[in-house]
Design a protein around this nucleic acid. Structure first.
Lengths: 335, 335
DNA sequence: GTCAGAATTGCAAACGCTTACAACGTTATA
DNA sequence: TATAACGTTGTAAGCGTTTGCAATTCTGAC
């Protein structure tokens, strides 16, 4: 049964006594084939164990049925959940996924996009917050459609799927204010990233303004997205005499929480915490973490769906999709 | 600068006034090219913004510089850390990674391998515990080399990279015995999986025997790999009057821990927990989870390195690699 | 039984590159 | 100066498909 070096379309054609073209037609489900010859071809394919060579197909048709996914890090729960959404709908549309980790390094992001382009992917899903000019140019240069998932480009030119980060953060702050906490810290990534400067910070300031709280940049913190960074930044947050924090990453939030508890703070009475990604981390700890709820899987899925349309040259009503977010009230806020 | 539909090798050759072959040679770093013409070709490439078409290259050379990774689920921290190790060394050797999620469904695993084969990947890294006959056959049929990462096939025929699960579990049980806990539960996946039946269970029983504890199959539990499953199985573990548990998944362990604490058990005095994967989950909770330590990243990295050798037809001394494991003693065990 | 039009099929040219093999020019050796 | 030997470059045959177009075979209507 296992033919050694696999059969080609040519072998199948010979076996049946038809031309390559005919075999190709039945393989591709083209309707212009008589039912009886279709049967024969299918049988021969079965017997020879023929599998179309996707590479040759890609060369001839200029479609690889492969998309590229560039993301910061697979081990980051937030992004891996997006990736899962992407992968599931990609499969649904018979695309394979070429995955690249970049650690948000613009150099690697640029290389990744270029590499994917040379591999002739039919489309690209991009995740990452940097999106500097170089990366943007590269994306424009690749002649595959690109959609951003859970990521923001400053100009808002590229198709993207996100939640409304401004509102989300604003509501988080609102909640703490309502709970009588006023010295609310904000922990984000670098202000060079649009998502931080133009979204999270804006939401934060808007909420403060509404509550007549004067903005204090001593309550603004930048941290990497990991537990250790949370532990570390927590010391400064404590020193700044904050009574609450909005963190942009669950691991960071956890680091802060553990530090605060170990330093005598009662959570949530003395110190409230709201995190942003609502990953599995939020429910395994005690107390559970209150979090902005993002439909992560759906962000990926919707982005991928949009990409299929783009690859098909279908017209898209709205290329700047904002999916609904929630606030998952759990144990690190009073209400 | 951005040529529209990108230039081909033919355009470059024309520009310089040499043949395709020569351009191909410089692109591929072939040494048999005079320095001066090499320069000219390189310049033309630069000017035209030429990028080799990897698909055409793949067809001609029968090498795609792409490997396939089939794994249960990217959002599972254990596997995603393996994947990161794989990806990093894959990049190091200039391979791209085609990623497929299977949810450990043998049907999807089979499809995935077949699909990767038709995409002409140069090699495959397989993760997942099922590995039934069908999947094994498919793997044998694909003419790309395959290596297992963090996974076991019953016959031990395929190249693989793992830790010594027998010893690891045995040592975990030893620890609890030393701590005077005797009714030690074992939570694994289905006994149809070789890794559970032939490794974890064996290690468990061996340790029990050494300690003269009679094996009680009431202390054997099977659970899915998630937090909810942990919460659920915990009830039965409690009912079985166990005073400790070895869990094969961190989320499960966390579910058990939280359940036990909510039911009045003091951890670790009344009830000890040792988990197996040592993911980030283990250090963000209070108490922190004692865990078998697995070099997850390295398992992936070593597996990928092995695959590069296989793809290169290099001889490999040992195709059944066992990396060292540890026991990370933290808060859920007395010692 | 004819014939137009539809339904099937085959032909052959791409797709963009790699890679034997052949051909050339050049240098070193005798 | 002739010649072997090498370094450099070109020629052309694939790699396994898809696909526009032409050729052939069927249909049914007349």
């Amino acid at each position: 049964m296992q033919k050694k070096s696999s059969a080609t379309i040519y072998d199948v054609a010979n076996r049946v006594g038809v031309s390559l073209a005919t075999v190709s037609r039945v393989v591709n489900g083209n309707s212009n084939v008589r039912e009886s010859t279709k049967r024969k071809v299918l049988d021969a394919i079965e017997e020879l164990g023929y599998h179309p060579n996707a590479v040759a197909r890609g060369l001839a048709s200029k479609k690889t049925t492969t998309i590229g996914v560039v993301m910061p890090d697979v081990t980051d729960m937030y992004y891996s959940e997006l990736a899962r959404g992407i992968d599931d709908v990609a499969n649904m549309y018979h695309y394979d996924v070429l995955l690249t980790n970049t650690d948000e390094d613009p150099v690697r992001e640029t290389m990744a996009v270029n590499n994917l382009a040379s591999k002739q992917v039919d489309g690209i899903i991009f995740m990452g917050n940097e999106l500097d000019r170089e990366v943007l140019n590269t994306i424009a240069g690749a002649d595959a459609p690109v959609v951003l998932a859970g990521s923001i480009d400053a100009e808002g030119q590229l198709p993207s799927v996100n939640v409304d980060y401004v509102k989300a953060v604003e509501e988080a702050v609102d909640t703490m204010v309502k709970n009588k906490h006023k010295r609310i810290a904000l922990v984000t990534g670098p202000m060079t990233h649009a998502i931080n400067k133009l979204h999270r910070l804006v939401g934060y300031q808007t909420a403060l303004e509404k509550a007549d709280i004067v903005f204090d940049d001593k309550l603004l913190f930048v941290a990497h997205q990991d537990y250790a960074a949370g532990l570390q930044i927590a010391e400064k947050i404590l020193a700044a005499e904050a009574d609450g924090v909005i963190a942009y990453d669950d691991e960071v939030a956890l680091g802060i929480m553990n530090y605060m508890r170990e330093h005598g703070k009662r959570i949530p009475e003395d110190f409230e915490i709201i995190t942003s990604n609502d990953t599995k981390f939020t429910i395994v700890t005690r107390p559970e973490l209150t979090s902005i709820g993002q439909p992560k899987y759906d962000i990926g899925a919707v982005a991928m769906r949009m990409l299929t349309k783009l690859m098909n040259n279908e017209i898209i009503d709205d290329t700047q999709v904002k999916l609904p977010h929630t606030l998952e009230r759990r144990g690190t806020t009073i209400n």
